[in-house]
Structure formats: C-alpha cells, structure tokens
Amino acid sequence: MLSLIKLPRVFTINQVPKVFHEDSIISGYRHPRSSATDCILSLFQLTNETLNIWTHFLPTWYFLWKVVTVVLMQTAWQDSFIWPLVIFLLTCCIYPLASSCAHTFSTMSTRARHICFFFDYGALSLYSLGSAIVYSAYVFPDKWVNSFFHQCYVPIAVLNTVICTAVACYSRLGLPFLQYNYDTVKRFPESQAPKFSKFLRVVAFAYPYLFDNIPLFYRVFLCEGAGCTDNHTNILHYNHIALALLTGFLFATHLPERLAPGSFDYIGHSHQLFHVCGILGTHFQMKAMEQDMVTRRLWLLEHSIPLSFANSVGAALLCVVVNLTIIILYSLPLLSAPVHQEKKHDKGPRKASAKVCPCY
C-alpha cells in the first residue's frame, strides 16, 4: 500500500533554514514547509525525526493502558490515596504524546516549530509536577513525613513548573509581545545565541528534576538509621535515577553524533537515545511509585499529610491552566505575524553547497 504513495523527499542541512538545523545531523531533514499530510506520511519513511516520533508515540499507549488499569481495577475515584498515582500516570501519557506531535508537525513552518515545542515544554514541566505530587504522597522518607519541607513541597513544585515552562519558552523566543514584526526573528535567543538557548533549556528542566528528587536522593543515598524507609523498592529508584542522569547527559552533550557528524543521522543519534532512556526511566519510576504506594499505604495514611483535592488534582489543574496561558502568550506574536513575512525567512530547500556544515 505504501509503495503506491509518494513519500516526501528529504534534504541535507545546507538545504533547509538554520532554525531547523540539528547539532551534528547532516541529512534526513524534511521540507521546512511540509503540509500536515506530508508530516504524517513522513512517519512511514526514514528521516532524522522518524524514531524520535515513534519512541514516544508508542509508549503513550502503554502509559494510557496503565491509567485505565489503575482507574478501573483500583476504583481511583473512590480512593483519594490513589489520586497522586493517577495524576502521575496522566502526565506520563501527556509528555510523550506532546513530544511525538511536536516532532511530527514541527516542519510545517518556523512558527509551527516554535509553537509545537512550546507545548512539548509545557508537557514536560507538567510531568515534573506529576512526579512531585506522587513523591509527596508515597516516597518521602519516614523521618521527613509531615515536616515543614513536606508541607511546602507541592506548592514549591507548582511554582517550579510555571518557571520551567516560562524559561523553556523564553529560550526560543525571548519575552512574549516584544516581537511585533517577524523580521525580529534574528534577535530571538535561539537564533542569536543557540548555545545559551540550549543551556537555558537544560537548566529549566534540570532544576525541577533536582528539586523533586530531594526526598528521594536523601532517602536512597544519605539517610541512615531509623526512619529512612530502606525497603526493596529502592532498587527501582536506583534504576530510575541512573536512567534519568543518562537522559540528561545525552540531551546536553549530543553524543554520539557529535563525534561523527552525519553517521547517526537516521538511527542512533542522541535525541533518539534520550527518548528511549527517558521512557525507560519513567517506567522504573512508575513501578517504584506503585510498589511504595502498596508497601507503605497503612503507615502513610496514619502519619502523612492528608491527601486532598488542593494538593493533588487541584495543583495539577492549576498548572495546566497556567502552562496553557504561558504557551498562548508566547504563541500569539507568532500567530499574529503576517504569513508573507514568515515565508521570506522560511524559504524552501536550497541547492546544497559542496561544504557540509557539522553544526557544532
């Protein structure tokens, strides 16, 4: 069937605008003004984005199945103790789905690329909040349960989520409503200082992760003696932490393609490995949450902060609303820009020059 469909052609780095360039990826680029149909068809051909899309799209359905299983088999709507797990699992569905959609449709235009990744960043920051909510409910070591830090933990995580989304969006376009003309694109942070832009994004996502994991790091690495919650779940936490650190390393370093530009354009580049490690880390994190929830349930119900709408569902809904507001504020200047100005900057593929840029 697919043999009867004409698949979109792919291009080299010198044939597409700079905003679409990926570090050390030389070939496999899609047309910078692809139609939605071309973007969907590209899922079934090998480009430098194909595995980025599938490595997040398929796990979405796995996590969705887990949500349905928990809701139906554990009657979550009747048991508030399960609410944090459901919220966490929903964020585990949202962030890979948003990522796969962003990678699929990001080549429709320059403005579409920015807006797609705004949603990707918002989904990732929401996942960090889901992690904080479930950690607060099940992971805190016994000696920290109901402490002042525990009581402040979720509100601070809500603030971190908002900051994370705002800083990540800022790293692409600067402050919203300061770009009144599409010609100012050359002054956007990502175009003017791509390394600094990447640094901002690393910090934006590393900070909430490190904060969220303070109770876990203390529990598995520093705590000694009574009240440390040293149980058989900790091996799952170790696996999750190792994969999370590997995920961050791959995102920040662009290895292995940086060592051999052009050799990993289609299979094996850092973003694909980043996706795979991230999903595996989330899987181990989920298994650890489920195990802690079951193992510690009776003790936590007696000693921990009571679970309520405000510190679980309410906090998540608040962040959804605020994140969407931030994304809209950053997207409006792009959506209001005249189409002809975008086309002037977002030209189609050019004839490739003899020199191939490694894009370090």
Rank of each mutant, 00 (worst) to 15 (best):
C92L: 13
F211P: 02
T55L: 06
N234R: 15
L58D: 03
H283I: 15
K287V: 11
K186V: 14
E290Q: 13
Y180R: 12
C359L: 06
S270L: 04
C92M: 13
R111F: 09
H31K: 02
L236I: 02
A36Y: 14
W61P: 01
R187L: 13
R219E: 04
F119A: 04
C152K: 12
A76S: 12
L2N: 06
Y62R: 01
P141N: 08
P256R: 10
T107A: 04
I26F: 00
V134K: 01
S100K: 00
L317I: 14
S171A: 15
T233S: 15
L64R: 04
T233V: 11
M73W: 11
A193N: 14
P155D: 12
F205H: 10
F11G: 01
L298I: 12
A242I: 13
L236N: 07
P208F: 05
H275T: 06
A352V: 08
A354S: 13
R172Q: 11
S147H: 08
L51D: 01
L318Y: 12
T253L: 10
P84L: 05
I26P: 00
I25F: 04
T107P: 00
N213P: 00
S331Y: 07
T184D: 14
R258Q: 11
F63W: 12
G281F: 03
D38R: 03
T325E: 07
S304P: 04
L129V: 05
L129D: 02
Y182L: 08
Y180P: 00
L7H: 05
Y135Q: 09
N234P: 00
A123V: 01
A354W: 10
F57L: 15
C319G: 07
Y170S: 02
N52I: 05
H150M: 13
L200I: 08
N239K: 11
R219G: 02
F274L: 10
L173C: 13
V322K: 07
Y29E: 05
N181G: 05
Y170W: 13
F20V: 03
F118W: 01
C152Q: 14
S263E: 10
H269P: 00
H269V: 05
I328R: 08
L317V: 14
T233R: 03
D79M: 07
K198P: 00
H31C: 02
T253Q: 05
I327L: 11
L236Q: 09
A36K: 10
I40S: 07
L250Y: 09
Y360G: 03
Y266C: 01
K18W: 11
F140A: 11
R258L: 08
L97R: 01
A112C: 14
L245H: 09
I13N: 01
H232P: 00
Y95A: 09
K347N: 11
I40D: 01
S308K: 09
F284R: 05
L2T: 00
L124T: 06
D38S: 13
I327W: 04
V167I: 15
V276W: 03
F57M: 14
L216G: 02
P59D: 09
T60V: 09
D292W: 01
